[in-house]
Amino acid sequence: MDGIGDICRKHNCLFLVDTVASLGAAPIFMDQQNIDILYTGSQKALNAPPGTAPISFNERACQKMFNRKTKPVSYLFDMTHLSNYWGCDGKPARLYHHTGPVSGFFALRESLAILAERGLETSWKKHKEVAAYLYRGLEDLGIKLFIPDRDLRLPSVTTIAIPDGYDWRELLMYIMKNHQMEMTGGLGPSIGMVMRIGLMGYNCEKHNADMALHALADALKNCKKSKA
């Protein structure tokens, strides 16, 4: 992320960052990195049930949002309406926007309290150590990491190149059926190129990495490999 926010400031555009799988697992500094809008998901490294999506706007983004001339096509996408619901727009009148998932908010608050007690630096270190452990195990299996540069990898989600000659869908289905474990394929342009392993939050443990490695080794042994 370093430097991208500076470029956005230079060209007078907003910098929005998706930290769904990284907040709590890897260092991210909204102010220092000149991030204007940052959002995440409750169910990943924050370790809360799915259903809530924390989002943050800095002053620069708020000025842009509150001074725009056109309205969104739907109030569902209207952040000014949402900010009023949360009491963030400075207006005394509060309008109805939606019924909030109250139990989800309390669960998220507790998960954040646990993370704060543990310490962000400790969480970052744990995710990095478990990721490194997983990398070594994958390399021992002869599996290539999709991102060659270790410093550019996200510690909470590891992308591996699909082993030559294997059908990635067959590998994933075998692992789900025989090990009750869900790994996923790529997204967008990476579909058919990678498989993804997520170890984050509560699941960020070496014994879970061992389970993933065992499942992969078993799948490689028992799934058909083309001769081409």
Rank of each mutant, 00 (worst) to 15 (best):
A116Y: 08
I55L: 09
P101C: 15
L112D: 03
E139T: 06
G100R: 03
G100C: 04
K64C: 08
F57K: 03
L108A: 10
G165V: 12
T80E: 13
S156T: 07
L152Q: 01
R94P: 10
P49A: 05
R169G: 09
K125S: 08
E121C: 02
E121I: 04
K177F: 14
K71A: 06
K91H: 10
D151G: 02
K64V: 12
Y85Q: 11
S83E: 13
T52D: 13
E129N: 03
L112P: 04
I55E: 05
I162M: 05
C62R: 03
I55P: 03
A161K: 09
A116K: 15
D140Y: 01
H98N: 05
Q180C: 14
A107G: 05
A93R: 14
Q180A: 14
R153W: 02
D89K: 08
G51M: 00
H97W: 13
V102Q: 04
M65I: 15
A61D: 13
L138Y: 01
E170F: 11
G51R: 01
D151F: 03
T80C: 14
P148V: 00
L152H: 03
K125T: 09
G51C: 00
Q43Y: 05
N58V: 10
D140R: 14
F66V: 14
E129L: 05
A107H: 09
T158D: 01
L141S: 08
Y96F: 15
C88H: 10
P92C: 12
I175L: 07
Y85W: 13
H127G: 04
W168F: 11
T99W: 12
K128W: 00
P50F: 03
Q63P: 02
I114W: 00
K71V: 00
A132N: 08
P72L: 01
Y75C: 10
L76N: 11
S123E: 14
G165P: 06
V157I: 13
A107Q: 08
F77S: 09
Q180P: 00
V102W: 06
K125M: 08
P155C: 03
L46R: 06
S123N: 05
F146L: 01
K91D: 10
A61L: 10
R60V: 01
Y75P: 12
E170N: 13
V73R: 04
L138N: 01
V130L: 07
K128V: 00
E117D: 15
N58Q: 06
R94Y: 13
I143W: 04
A161I: 06
F105C: 11
T70L: 15
K126Y: 09
L46Q: 09
L154P: 00
L95P: 15
I147N: 12
K91I: 07
F105W: 11
T122G: 01
G100M: 05
V130P: 02
T158A: 04
D149F: 01
I162K: 01
N58C: 07
S156L: 04
D167T: 12
